[in-house]
Computed example of a mutant assay.
Amino acid sequence: MTSPAALELRHVRNVEEVRQEIVDVHAEVRHRDFGLTGPFYTVERFNERLTGHSSALGWEAVVAYDQGEAVGFAYGVPLGTKSRWWTAMTTQMPEGFAEETGSRTFALNEIVVRKTWRGTGAAHRIHEELLSGRPEERITLLVNPAAGDGKVQAVYERWGYEKIGEQQPFPDSPVFASMMRTLR
Rank of each mutant, 00 (worst) to 15 (best):
Ala146Asp: 11
Glu128Asn: 12
Glu60Phe: 03
Ala122Trp: 07
Val77Leu: 06
Tyr75Gln: 07
Val71Ile: 08
Gln153Asn: 01
Gly148Asp: 03
Asn109Gly: 06
Val113Thr: 11
Tyr65Val: 03
Arg104Cys: 07
Met93Lys: 13
Thr90Glu: 15
Gly58Ile: 04
Ala74Leu: 11
Gly76Thr: 12
Gly165Glu: 06
His127Arg: 14
Asp149Phe: 09
Thr120His: 02
His124Thr: 11
Ala123Gly: 15
Val143Gly: 02
Trp117Arg: 14
Trp159Asp: 03
Ala61Tyr: 02
Gly150Pro: 01
Thr120Cys: 01
Lys163Asn: 00
Arg138Lys: 15
Gly72Asn: 10
Tyr75Trp: 07
Tyr161Met: 00
Glu60Ser: 02
Gly72Phe: 11
Gly68Asp: 06
Glu100Val: 02
Gly58Arg: 10
Glu157Ser: 01
Ala122Cys: 06
Ala74His: 08
Leu57Glu: 14
Thr101Val: 03
Arg138Val: 14
Ala123Lys: 05
Glu129Cys: 15
Val62Cys: 08
Gly160Gln: 08
Arg114Thr: 14
Ala147Pro: 05
Gly148Ser: 08
Trp117Glu: 14
Gln67Met: 02
Pro145Val: 07
Gly52Lys: 08
Gly96His: 06
Ala107Asn: 10
Ala70Met: 05
Ala56Met: 09
Glu157His: 05
Glu95Arg: 15
Glu110Gly: 02
Ala61Glu: 01
Gly148Pro: 05
Glu100Ser: 05
Glu99Leu: 13
Ala146Val: 00
Ile111Trp: 03
His127Gly: 10
Tyr65Arg: 14
Val143Thr: 09
Thr116His: 11
Glu110Asn: 13
Pro135Tyr: 04
Arg118Lys: 12
Phe97Cys: 05
Leu142Glu: 15
Arg134Lys: 15
Glu157Leu: 00
Val155Lys: 06
Ser103Ala: 12
Thr91Tyr: 13
